[in-house]
């Protein structure tokens, strides 16, 4: 399988701020990767390095095997980029902007472009300076998606969009996946990432601390269990992997890491009236990584 993105010790230092430290990441073709991290973690920096907009301090970045730092123009033929902040030429109209960016990209699926305009309910006849923030974002999204590029680099692409448009965006990513396009999605909207992404990478203070499918990540973290028993809760001190145990008469609330069988066996002796177990949401995983201690290490200190 061809690799869409490959980085090797990719690093960027601004003055004394280490925005990105030795990133080693591979994204196979056709994958939708969620790229998460707190503010200032280095997500935008990674994408700008992949685009060759900024120079790597150390390391390599490849897009479909092309060195993106040495040969950005070549790489850009296969890439579309959507930033979270749309700084477009205020004096051009929506149409003019789409025409210009399409011509410069060199490839536009015009039927798809028209579909996008309809789907996002976008009016391209006005000048950019008179669009609202959300409408500017729609324009930049349409401009990015309309080329049907092999790799979509999306940096908080839905910032400022209303929930309806957010749904339209999800449809677009689903379509892209079905067509075999690769998507690199940096986002703070965890439900969006949870719904769309095959794998998730988590960045903190410039370091990649976690990559994997959501299932794998969940596997590593605790399962929430809530149970109501026939009698009082038995002694659980011999059950491995338990934490956050709360007992209230015949009600139990706890978290289990690892296999759940030992807990079930112990509870079965008392008789279980009702039991719910729930996997952690991405939000809980995320907060587990950044909550309390995580924040303090975030890379914004030098900003």
């Amino acid at each position: 399988m061809e690799t869409a993105i490959r980085t090797e010790n990719l690093s960027k230092t601004y003055g004394t701020t280490r925005a990105l430290v030795s990133l080693n990441l591979e994204v196979p073709r056709g994958e939708v990767l969620g790229y998460l991290g707190p503010n200032g973690a280095g997500k935008t920096t990674t994408i700008r390095l992949l685009l060759g907009l900024v120079r790597a301090t150390v390391g390599r970045a490849e897009i479909f095997g092309i060195d993106a730092q040495a040969n950005p123009v070549e790489a850009h033929r296969r890439v579309a980029y959507v930033p979270g902040e749309a700084n477009l030429w205020p004096q051009l109209t929506g149409w003019e902007t789409l025409y210009l960016l399409g011509r410069i990209q060199g490839r536009v699926d015009t039927a798809y472009r028209d579909l996008l305009i309809e789907r996002f309910d976008f009016d391209p006849t006005k000048k950019v300076r008179s669009y609202s923030k959300g409408n500017r974002q729609k324009l930049i999204l349409i401009a990015g998606l309309m080329s049907r590029a092999d790799l979509l680099l999306l940096d908080e692409p839905t910032s400022g969009l209303d929930p309806l448009m957010e749904r339209a965006f999800r449809e677009c990513v689903q379509e892209a996946r079905e067509r075999g396009q690769t998507v690199f999605l940096s986002s703070h909207i965890l439900s969006e990432v949870e719904a769309l992404c095959d794998r998730v990478a988590i960045l903190r203070a410039g370091h990649l601390i976690e990559v994997g499918t959501l299932a794998e990540m969940r596997h590593l973290s605790a399962l929430h269990v809530e149970a109501e028993l026939d009698g009082t809760v038995p002694d659980l001190s011999n059950v491995p992997g338990l934490s956050a145990v709360e007992v209230e008469g015949n009600r139990l609330r706890c978290e289990v890491t690892g296999p759940i069988e030992p807990l079930l066996a112990t509870l079965a002796s008392t008789g279980v009236r009702h039991l719910v177990s729930r996997e952690p949401s991405l939000e809980e995983l995320f907060l587990a990584h950044y909550g309390a201690d995580g924040r303090g290490e975030a890379g914004d200190d030098a900003a």
């Binding site: 685009l51 060759g52 907009l53 950005p72 123009v73 070549e74 850009h76 033929r77 890439v79 980029y81 930033p83 700084n87 477009l88 960016l101 410069i104 990209q105 060199g106 401009a143």
Partner: peptide
């Protein structure tokens, strides 16, 4: 940015 993320030298 919008030019240089596209194939423009």
């Amino acid at each position: 940015d919008h030019l240089f993320v596209r194939p423009v030298e």
